[in-house]
């Protein structure tokens, strides 16, 4: 088992007195090599779940375990990626990919070698000496994925990494991410508000309620081609899964 949330709640102090409960008694597990998506309305605590997995915040109550180790702070098991690529503009692409390795006592030559390997995996060969501003949005996200993979994490956390991209780039990038992640055999937690993206990329989907976030449904996606969302996209069952998600999120009632 790669990731486990047991009875996790998180509240934030608000201005003045009182506090805001963001996540309420959430429990779930993610098995090794599994690709799990978390969907839910905006403000439902999706990103809070991600930050707790990364060890950036501690839960108010309950436990988060990664690879059976209690998460008490930022740790080497987890690599995360946001909607913003967060490439350092003053570093070349290769130096950006090396960034995560620098604090981990990896020697200069090994860093470069590992970074070059990930650069190739993410189809960025030839761009190592470019600077982030010279790359397109999709390429920048691929560079961010390469940086995430370079530290060889056990879990990859993706927080809406495709949401800032145009529709075509998004499809291609989902496909390239899915392939790279499958090849690397990484456990992945994807936070997204795009329901079809969740269906196309995941083995399993967790549906969160509105704030305070609780897991209200868990849907196993029993479809082939997890490594090729573009192929999965044309399967007729995709629509049914999306409809299920719609129902759980009560989108029709809200639209009425």
């Amino acid at each position: 088992m790669a990731l486990e949330f047991s009875e996790v709640s998180k509240s934030f102090p608000t201005q003045g007195e009182g506090s805001l409960l963001a996540v309420d008694n959430v429990s779930f597990r993610v098995e090794e090599g599994e690709f799990v998506s978390v969907v839910g309305p905006s403000g439902c605590g999706k990103s809070t779940i991600l930050s707790m997995t990364a060890g950036l915040y501690q839960p108010t109550s309950g436990e988060v375990r990664v690879s059976n180790e209690l998460v008490t702070g930022p740790n080497a098991h987890v690599g995360f990626m946001l909607q913003k690529d967060l490439l350092l503009p003053w570093r070349s692409i290769i130096a950006n990919i090396e960034f995560g390795l620098e604090a981990r006592g990896v020697g200069r030559e090994e860093r470069r070698a590992r970074a070059m390997k990930e650069l190739e995996h993410c189809q960025l060969s030839g761009f190592e000496d470019h600077y982030p501003y010279q790359l397109s949005g999709g390429m920048r996200q691929r560079a961010a994925l390469a940086r995430t993979l370079a530290i060889n994490p056990e879990i990859i956390l993706l927080d809406e990494p495709f949401s800032a991209l145009d529709a075509q780039t998004k499809l291609l990038l989902q496909n390239s991410f899915a392939k790279t992640i499958k090849e690397a055999g990484k456990t992945t937690l994807l936070i997204t508000h795009d329901l079809s993206e969740a269906v196309l990329m995941s083995d399993r989907i967790l549906v969160l309620s509105e704030r305070p976030g609780q897991v209200i449904a868990e849907i196993k996606v029993d479809l082939p081609h997890r490594d090729q969302p573009i192929k999965r996209r044309v399967l007729p069952e995709v629509g049914e899964y999306a409809a299920q998600l719609f129902k759980h999120l009560k989108l029709e009632e809200k639209a009425a």
Partner: peptide
């Protein structure tokens, strides 16, 4: 950018590391 600082923290950079590198 707070997100850059968080990224560096997630990569286990020390306070001094965050200062010099971010």
């Amino acid at each position: 950018d707070r997100d850059l600082v968080n990224l560096a923290r997630a990569y286990s950079l020390t306070r001094l590391g965050v200062f010099w590198k971010i």
